Computed example of a mutant assay.
Amino acid sequence: MKRLVSFIVIIAGALTCVLGQSTSESHQAFQPGEVWTDTDGVHINAHGGGILFHEGKYYWFGEHKTGGRTGNRAMVGVSCYSSTDLLNWKREGVALAVHEEGSGSDIEKGSVIERPKVIYNEKTGKFVMWFHLELKGQGYNAARTALATSDHPTGPYEFQKSLRPNPGTWPVNFEKSWKKKSITEKDLEGWSEEWKKEVAEGLFIRRDFHTGQMARDMTLYVDDDGKAYHIYSAEENLTLHIAELTDDYLGFTGKWAVIEPAGHNEAPAIFKQNDKYYLITSGCTGWDPNAARSFVADDLMGPWTSLGNPAVGEGADLTFDSQSTFIVPVQGKTDAFIFMADRWRPENAIDGRYVWLPIQMKEGRPVLEWQDSWDLSYFDK
C-alpha cells in the first residue's frame, strides 16, 4: 500500500511539474523578430499571414514554408492556427492543401501561394479565402488571385478558381480621355518621367483591360456594412487596386479604383478608425525590406492621401527589417490595432520571423515604434 501511495505521489508530482512547466512556457508577451512557437513548441509556420476573428477565437492563416531557397514554393499549402489571446497559438493543420504534382491544377505542388486571407460571409455561412497565386513553372508572370471556400474556419478549404480581376471594366477614378490613348510600352523609355506619367494615366490598365488586371500582394477588408474589398498590387507592382467583392465574396462587382498610381506599392494592410481608412504598404525591393508607407482616405475608393513612413526610430528606414502583411483589430479594446509583418528569409524560407507591433495614432497618422517585448495591456495606457 505504501508503495502504491508513493507511486501516486511521484506521478502526481511529475504531472504537477509538467503542468507547471507547460504554464510557465506559455507566451506572456509579443517578442517581435524572435522564434515564435505554437502550443506544441514548434516554430509557427504561417507566413504572409492574415487573421480572422470568429465566435470568440482568432484564426491565423499563412503560407506554409519549407527549408532552403525553394521553400517559397507551395509544397504543402496554407496553414491555420487558432488562439483566444493572440499570444498562444494552437496548430489546426493545413487549411488548404496543394494538389498533387502533375495534376495540372492551378494550385498543384510547386506553384506559388502567397498572402492568404480569410473572411466570413454572414449571409452564406461560408469562410472565403483569397490569395495571390503564381502558376507552377511560370515564375511571377501569371499574377493571379485565387479563391477557396469552406464551411469551417479551419477548413478544409476547397479550391474554386484563379483569375485576373475586373476584365473589361475601368476604375471609377479613371479619366475618360485616358481610355482612348494609343501609346504603348514600346513607345516609351522605361522609368523615364514620361513613362511614369503614362503609367499613372493607365498604360498597363489599357494593356490588361481585356484579360483582367494583374494581382499580386493582397489583403481583404470587410467594412462595417458587410461589403468586402480585395486590395492588391497590380500593373507590374506599380499601382495598388481596390476592388469591391460581390455579396457572397466569391467574385468582383466591377467597381474598383486605383490607389497611388505609379507609386510602386505592395504588401497592403488596412484598418479603419473614426470613420477614416488607413493603409500601410511597402515599396518594392523583392525579399529585401524597405521603408513602409502610409495613406488615409475618407472613402475606400479614394482619394488617398500620403502620410509618409509610419515607422519611427532606429530601424524605421527598413520597417525594422520587415514587411507588412495584415493589421489585426484587437477584440474587446477600443481603437487597438496590431501591425503584422514578416521578416523574409529567402535563403531558408522556413526561418522567416514575425514582427507584430502596436499601432499608435499621433496627429492623425499611424505610428510604429519598436518594442522588444509587449502585451495587450499596452492598449490600456
Rank of each mutant, 00 (worst) to 15 (best):
F30E: 02
I350Q: 08
K180D: 15
E122G: 00
W304R: 08
T149F: 03
G41Y: 08
N88A: 14
M218Q: 15
T219A: 10
R73A: 07
Y378K: 05
S103Y: 05
A316L: 07
F131S: 03
N72Q: 14
G93K: 09
P310D: 04
P366D: 04
Y278K: 07
W374R: 04
K123V: 08
Q21M: 12
V9M: 11
K179T: 04
Q331P: 00
A95Y: 15
A143L: 00
A262F: 07
S233F: 01
D372K: 14
P346I: 05
H47I: 07
Y221E: 03
F127S: 07
P165S: 02
K179Q: 13
K123R: 14
L86R: 13
S6Y: 11
L133M: 09
E198V: 03
K90A: 02
I359R: 02
G125K: 11
D342H: 08
L250M: 08
T145P: 02
K272P: 08
D247C: 04
D375T: 07
A291H: 15
L86F: 11
N166D: 13
L240M: 13
R216G: 00
I338D: 01
H54K: 14
S306L: 01
A349C: 12
L279Q: 12
T154S: 15
K272S: 14
A200M: 06
E266I: 10
